[in-house]
Design a protein around this nucleic acid. Structure first.
Length: 899
RNA sequence: GCCGGGGUGGCGGAAUUGGUAGACGCGCCGGAUUCAAAAUCCGGUUCUGGUAACAGAGUGCGAGUUCGAUUCUCGCUCCCGGCACCA
């Protein structure tokens, strides 16, 4: 699912003779508590005791919590520091919820079909299943080394026939419900990859993977009718606790719009009527011309003899343009007059019909009525070709724009005059329907989902072709197993590599009928569309999920994963889910109740100074995209050491040459930049607990933030201090500072304030501040001469979700034989939260002049009097007229004075 | 262009039913320990002035509301992410 690959080598590089080593971390030897030993010990313990396996016999009277990570695509490069960010967050929640008495489902698996393994097979002949298995091993080890509390008995793997059997079964449900159909569709074909690609896999006419050129060609494809669910997918968003940006992106992607379709008769012709789609039926009287997409089917029929040559020329050139060129040219709109005219049904006027590629064939009806007065695109086109403009909405008096798209009084529109836009739309639709000229219509940007790929490493379709067409195979025939192949080369034809599997391809059905299997495979999205359901009942041979278990566990309570999946994965999964819901197979209309995106982790902050060919430094304000904005000269970026720059004003400048501003920013981790950080090395040096803690301590989970290996020092030191607090350095036994004594009130206060803060922060996923609270706690406790065992234990329970290995070890040292994973989470006792005395601020005219200590229950009058008598406050009140006294209990006093 | 998010010390960040800006950590400076170093511990660290007490300025820029604004309102600006002729 996470397609980004990163290398796991950290290499220094030289720039102008200086060596930069962004993350050479084995150089310094870390001394401190024996994290390596402890972490291995507890990882082994959890595994052998199946601590986090929830098994089959659950106490269903307990509340459940399903916390899910987006499962990874096991790339050959292993984990990078971005993966464990979300995984750590979900692990903390999982561990916390267990301690809160929930049955917690916290699984992991592998999204293991996909192009990279197939391309590797092409190069090396290694079967993708071997590569995949090897990569999974590596990922599994890495995840285990970080101490995540997954239920490893529930691991799923999309390439396992026992898994994809049910992916195929779901496809059958789609097929049976008429939601899967075949169509000749112009699709992106990439010669180099020997496969078709989905729109989202082609960027600027090149393949997303490899950057190879792609062309459009028609192919028989499987398509899923996601558009049938457009309204449900849109409406379902309202009830979800998801980031607004993600919901908004899905809404835009679905792109629902309401309007009307209107029929225009072609003048002096018996050609078919031309139907247009518009969201502004109220502007019909302002339609001054009509535009058809170059691909529109009526173009041939209507073009006048004299215009035909020009029309054909324009159509040819439009067909050759890639999508990119079409959109790039949006500044200057082009088109050709067909020589034909259409009759405006509202007023009988004749308007010219043009073709232009700013009208898309695939949206609406592929034809529009152009209203330049109220549409900026039409305005531009009309300007270019000198077409008339009729305003039908009165713009505001001070309006100085071109097309006016706002609300206003309708003018020049016969029976609509004087209405608002909203009323006029309704009135016009009513008129159109009454007179047979058109009808109300809802449109979507969302297109049906191109669901087949001409690849090997994907799920085979459970489909065979006979003379009668496509049929699905019997359930008893599932899974349709991917055949072994000698060669993984694409056939070079639109048929995928499976076409070369002769023994597999042709079968005889039970009826005796001869049939041929579908040679397409499913796209990578298929397996990830429903994996969260399989985790609930991963080994069930009879159903994709047991209905009773499904009812208990669904929906997912918390789903954590990257924002790059905001639309596609999350929309496709919701679509399948709703289909399964409608089919009565599952009980919940939405799969993911709450969604959180972890922010990307960037490389370390870098300073870059740009230099021209003479080697002269160019100040950053003159640099844009690596060139000098003043003369267009190419500049070379020069990585500059921290010691050579100094902060000046808003930015950084060279310390030797302070008129030269340098660029200061953290970049996305990438091989080419050499700023990739490998978690294995961080774990080796600091330990998994310190690594987990740092990932959470960096800042808010959702935020993009730069990595800084030095920062791990901080969390490691913190864990060291905790260790020394509990363990005697000499003997390795429990420290004599931990005593069996009754805590003092003040000690209880420290503890319970920490419990309150950590609990609140974990509940709202503010892990950075919960860690800060634990640090403050240890800073305070370190000053105590002894620590009551009761306090020490409660603290360890608070630490446990965040740094589980160390917490377990110290818990054991305090004399416990069982894991603390299911201990009860500490309870905040309110009586220890309030202080007897508190410090409050005293301001005079809003400026802070003193801080005074008061008894918490002191009356307002007494507080004010105390504040007035403070020396420094008195200084500012002296000789002035006191106008107002403000006391916010427990917080602040403000005296307002005048001369 | 449109939609969404953001701008706070040298750095990551903390504080919003409006109430002591800079918690916690990194880095840096000073000290202790050490033959020395690492590690550890203690103190300092927004800027300016002052030995200090304290004073002035300060949360992207400019206005406004308020006794009081990082927080609310209006205008501007820069950065990040997404979409981009969807009629």
């Amino acid at each position: 699912m996470i397609p980004v690959g990163f290398i796991n080598i950290i290499h220094g590089f030289t720039v102008k003779g200086r060596l930069f080593e962004p993350a050479r971390i084995d150089e310094k030897r870390m001394v401190g508590y024996p994290f390596k030993e402890i972490e291995t010990k507890w990882q082994t313990h959890w595994e052998s005791h199946k601590t986090f396996s929830i098994g089959e016999d659950l106490d269903l009277s307990r509340p459940k919590y399903y916390v899910l990570d987006m499962f990874p695509y096991p790339s050959g490069d292993g984990l990078h520091v971005g993966h464990p960010e979300g995984y750590t967050a979900s692990d903390i929640i999982a561990r916390y919820k267990r301690m809160r008495g929930f049955n917690v489902l916290h699984p992991i698996g592998w999204d293991a079909f996909g192009l990279p393994a197939e391309q590797y097979a092409l190069k090396t002949g290694t079967h993708p299943s071997i590569t995949t298995e090897k990569n999974i091993q590596r990922f599994r080890e890495q995840l285990k080394s970080l101490g995540f509390s997954y239920d490893w008995d529930r691991e799923v793997n999309t390439t396992d026939p026992n898994y994809y059997r049910w992916t195929q079964w779901i496809f059958k449900q789609l097929f049976n419900r008429g939601l899967a159909y075949q169509q000749e569709k112009p699709v992106w074909w990439c010669e180099e990859l020997g496969t078709t690609l989905a729109n989202e896999e082609v960027i600027d006419g090149k393949s997303e993977v490899g950057g190879y050129p792609c062309i459009r060609r028609p192919l028989r494809q499987w398509v899923l009718k996601i558009t049938e669910y457009a309204d449900q997918l849109l409406d379902g968003l309202d009830e979800l606790d998801w980031p607004t940006s993600t919901k908004e992106m899905q809404r835009n992607w679905i792109g629902r719009s309401e309007g009307a379709e209107i029929d225009f008769r072609v003048a002096d012709s018996d050609a078919d009527k031309i139907r247009v789609y518009t969201t502004r039926p109220d502007t019909l009287f302002g339609a001054t011309y009509m535009v058809l997409a170059p691909e529109h089917e009526l173009v041939d029929q209507i073009s006048a003899a004299g215009a035909r040559a020009a029309v054909d020329r324009y159509r040819d050139s439009a067909a050759k343009k890639s999508e990119l060129e079409r959109t790039e040219l949006q500044k200057q709109k082009t088109g050709v007059f067909t020589g034909a005219h259409a009759i405006n049904p509202a007023n009988g006027k004749s308007i010219p019909i043009w073709i232009a590629d700013y009208v898309l064939a695939g949206y609406g009806t592929g034809a529009i009525m152009a209203v330049p007065a109220q549409d900026q695109r039409d305005w531009e086109f009309a300007g270019t070709y000198d077409l008339p403009v009729i305003r039908t909405v009165e713009p505001p008096a001070n309006f100085d724009g071109e097309a006016y798209t706002g609300d206003g009084k309708i003018i020049n529109s016969d029976f609509l005059d004087g209405m608002t836009v909203e009323a006029a739309k309704a009135a016009m639709i009513e008129w159109l329907e009454a007179n047979g000229h058109g009808e109300r219509k809802v449109n979507y940007k969302l297109r049906d989902w191109l669901f087949s790929r001409q690849r090997y490493w994907g799920e085979p379709f459970p489909v065979v072709f006979t003379d009668a067409g496509a049929t699905t195979v019997e359930d008893s025939e599932l899974p349709v197993i991917l055949p072994e192949l000698e060669e993984f080369k694409p056939s070079g034809t639109p048929e995928g590599p499976l076409a070369t599997a002769k023994d597999w391809l042709d079968i005889t059905l039970q009826s005796g009928q001869v049939a041929r299997r579908e040679t397409n495979t499913m796209p990578q999205w298929a397996g990830s569309c429903w994996y969260y359901l399989r985790y609930i009942d991963p080994h069930n041979p009879d159903a994709l999920v047991d209905p009773e278990k499904e009812r208990y566990w669904m929906p997912v309570d918390l789903y954590i994963g990257g924002a790059e999946h905001a639309v596609l994965h999350l929309l496709y999964a919701r679509f399948w889910h709703k289909v399964l819901y409608d089919a009565g197979i599952i009980s919940s209309p939405e799969p993911f109740a709450k969604l959180v995106h972890q922010g990307m982790i960037l490389g370390e902050l870098e300073f870059t100074c740009y230099r021209n060919r003479q080697g002269e430094a160019v100040s950053a304000e003159h640099v844009r995209d690596g060139t000098d904005t003043r003369n267009g000269e190419e500049l070379s970026p020069d990585r500059t050491a921290d010691s050579e720059v100094v902060k000046l004003g808003d930015g950084f400048v060279l310390s030797e040459q302070q008129d030269i501003a340098v660029e200061a920013r953290a970049h996305k981790m990438s091989k080419s930049r050499g700023n990739v950080v490998n978690p294995d090395e961080v774990v080796a040096r600091y330990g998994a607990d310190a690594f987990r803690l740092y990932e959470m301590f960096m800042g808010p989970l959702e935020q993009v933030k730069p990595w800084n290996t030095n920062g791990v020092d901080g969390t490691h030191r913190f864990l060291n201090r905790v260790w020394r607090l509990f363990v005697d350095n000499e003997s390795g036994n429990r420290s004599s500072k931990i005593v069996d004594a009754v805590p003092s009130d003040s000690q209880r206060k420290t503890l319970h304030q920490t419990i309150a803060k950590v609990t609140e922060d974990i509940e709202s996923m503010r892990f950075n501040t919960s860690i800060a609270a634990l640090m403050e706690f240890t800073n305070t406790v370190n000053k105590w001469s002894s620590v009551p065992k009761e306090i020490a234990e409660q603290f360890l329970l608070l630490l446990a979700p965040l740094a589980p290995h160390l917490a377990e070890e110290l818990w054991e040292k305090l004399g416990h034989n069982e894991t603390l994973a299911y201990e009860t989470w500490p309870e905040t006792l309110a009586q220890y939260l309030k202080d007897d005395t508190l410090m409050i601020a005293v301001q005079v005219n809003g400026k802070l002049r003193a801080q005074i200590e008061i008894a918490a229950d002191l009356s307002e009058e007494a507080v004010l009097s105390l504040a007035r008598s403070d020396d420094n406050v008195a200084r500012y009140l002296d000789g002035k007229t006191l106008r107002r006294e403000i006391y916010v209990p427990g917080r602040i006093v403000n005296f307002v004075v005048a001369n």
